[in-house]
Simulated assay, not measured.
Amino acid sequence: MRHPAACFILSAIDPDLLCPWLEVRFETDDFDTLRRLLELDPSEHLGPKNFYLLTPAQVEAVCVAFEINFEHGPREAFLFQYVDNGIHFPYLVHTGYELALMVQRRKPFGFIDFHSGRPTSVRLKAQFDTYVAQGLLHSQEEIIDVAGRPSRPGHQIGQIFYTLKGEEWRIPALEFIRQHINRQGDGFENLERLEGALLGYERWQNDWWIDHLARSGVTLYGAPLICKVDRAQYDWLVHAGFRALPPFDAPTFTLHSPHWLDDEAMKQAMQADSRIEAFVQFNIGLRHIMHAADFRTAGPYDIPTSLIPTINSDLVRTVRILVQRTEAPGLVEPSA
């Protein structure tokens, strides 16, 4: 049966470091042939959440069947469907590359989730432990036994922490942070930032990641919302340390969702209206204001200004400037 064409990734795995060594993307609508080569049930869904480990022979068979030029050599490979999730990192994310980066001494600290019932997890631990035995890495395990059931054998799960020699202090530092930091609002932001620093991410990389989380409305940041402010309101924000929304001299003010208002749209609005000094973002749990508008729609949303005290008392993050007139090219006011 033919399906709409989909993109797939073949990712050859380095047998020692267990990270992607070479990747190729191909497109096909012949899912039946792909299932046959992977030895899958004819009805199995080849969805974007499924990853398949291929033997070198299976990799070669896929390359021949779909005319793929891929110098994978005698390596296993993962095959999975490529889906653009909209998250385009401007730096290398360590996930999946921890062992390689630590062996190359480019990363001081990392941890992996372990499950004794998953062969890939057991194999990754074994490779890490090889370098522990050689004296390059230090490890600390936090693993518990999970009792079995009549239909399921017992297993072990947990996290294993690895550091370069001399960087062992990072493990108790992470545990101290996790135990004592407030995980709500700005506390969660601090937790992400400190964990990122301990794992070896640079400050600008942590800034990008935290801004992405806040704009996406995931984790504990609440819903991200955007509003415009004039010059007087912007000055008020500065004096308030960006910890509250300014007053609005009108019965209502307009909010936007960042999913429907990007930087270019904000700049265009500022070009059309010289009174707009900036667009700012704040984060709040929608339960506090959901009665004021239908947030299931794309917006914009007109909100009574009487709700500003409620918003300010329930902010889970400082107010952030997204686009400012004096910093946006082409939007600087001409001098008199």
Rank of each mutant, 00 (worst) to 15 (best):
R123Y: 03
V146A: 05
L164G: 00
V280I: 15
S313Q: 14
P309S: 05
N206Q: 12
N190D: 07
R105A: 14
I181P: 02
P172T: 12
T310V: 15
H115T: 02
D249L: 06
D41G: 01
S313Y: 04
V59K: 03
L38S: 11
I157V: 15
S313W: 01
L34E: 14
T219D: 11
P42R: 01
C227M: 09
H180I: 08
H180C: 06
L79Y: 03
G148L: 13
W204V: 04
E333Q: 12
G158V: 08
F282R: 13
I112W: 06
A77R: 04
L198W: 01
R105W: 00
I112A: 02
E168Q: 14
G154T: 12
S313K: 14
G200C: 02
T33N: 05
G47E: 00
G222S: 11
V238T: 05
T326N: 06
L191F: 13
L174V: 00
S11L: 06
P153W: 02
A214P: 00
P309V: 05
G166I: 06
R152W: 05
I276D: 08
H115D: 15
H256P: 01
P246G: 09
G196N: 09
D249G: 01
D302L: 04
E142Q: 13
G158Y: 11
D230Q: 06
F295P: 06
Y221H: 15
P90C: 10
D314T: 15
N206W: 00
A173Y: 03
E98A: 01
G330K: 13
Q104N: 10
R106C: 02
H212F: 09
P258G: 02
H256W: 15
T310N: 07
I181T: 12
E98L: 04
I289P: 08
H155N: 04
F109I: 00
